[in-house]
Write a protein that binds this DNA or RNA. Structure first.
Lengths: 137, 137
DNA sequence: ATATGTGCAAAGGGTTTGCAGATAT
DNA sequence: ATATCTGCAAACCCTTTGCACATAT
């Protein structure tokens, strides 16, 4: 995705197009799952004046219009990603890397809804913890 | 579970049996998913001298020997539960209540492992967000 | 022109830590 | 007797907030 497309997305959501926001989105596009500090440090080159507070404010703003999603990991660091199609997270307990695995969870959700008696299930957040192929060596 | 059984479990894990720990476990048994504050307030009657720091320290201690597990919810409150058999969490976005749904995730894990090429998957943490039957009315 | 966003510094909330005294084994 | 645990207070994150100035529309 290019700057222009990010600008488009922001416009659509009625958020002003600022260099900080573009930089945050570019950073998240480059590095799949980032913490606030990752983002802050990653964009300082592009937008040297940026403050941590602005990163925080924008993460909240972008989340509230569904451009971003937060990812909860077993460690205490909150991470963020650009909201794309449903996927599962694979977390390696050795290298602590987070990997995406695109899978349609619809059937699984449907099954859980039926069996549990829940009224409706809108979202499935799945985190699988184990050992990645690299760390297995 | 009774006090005696909790004492047994602590002994097995080589943790000293203290009134604070027993109270924490009883509290978590009574109320499925509790935050640190829930626990703290819940056990103050039984152990009036207890401090927040002790609750925190014990939660860490109990987690490290797998007696407790943390549950990550979409809100920013961390919750804890006694580690039992695999289950899925259903989170109602309206009343923010967390419900357990016991389900064997083995097949699902197996499928993800095979498809993703991960070396091994030890644990599946699934959080489904939606609307519970009560709030649907 | 006006609403929104930014950056700073201060405040806030939750969690962790160091230490001296207390308790479990 | 000794290792561990507790409670207090202080320290430490990480995150949010208020405000004046800057920027996008």
């Amino acid at each position: 995705m290019s700057k222009a497309i990010f600008a488009e997305i922001l416009k659509e959501k009625k958020l002003k197009i600022t260099p900080q926001r573009i930089a945050i989105l570019e950073e998240l596009e480059k590095n799949g799952h980032s913490s606030v500090d990752d983002i802050f440090n990653g964009i300082k080159l592009k937008v040297p004046s940026v403050s941590l507070a602005t990163v925080y404010k924008n993460i909240l703003a972008l989340q509230s219009v569904d451009i971003l999603k937060s990812v909860k990991t077993p460690t205490h660091k909150q991470k963020y990603e650009i909201n794309v199609k449903p996927h599962v997270h694979l977390f390696c307990k050795i290298c602590e890397n987070l990997e995406d695995f695109v899978i349609n969870t619809q059937d699984f959700q449907e099954y859980c809804k039926k069996e549990s008696g829940y009224y409706c299930i809108e979202e499935a957040s799945v985190l699988l913890t184990g050992v990645c192929r690299n760390c297995a060596k």
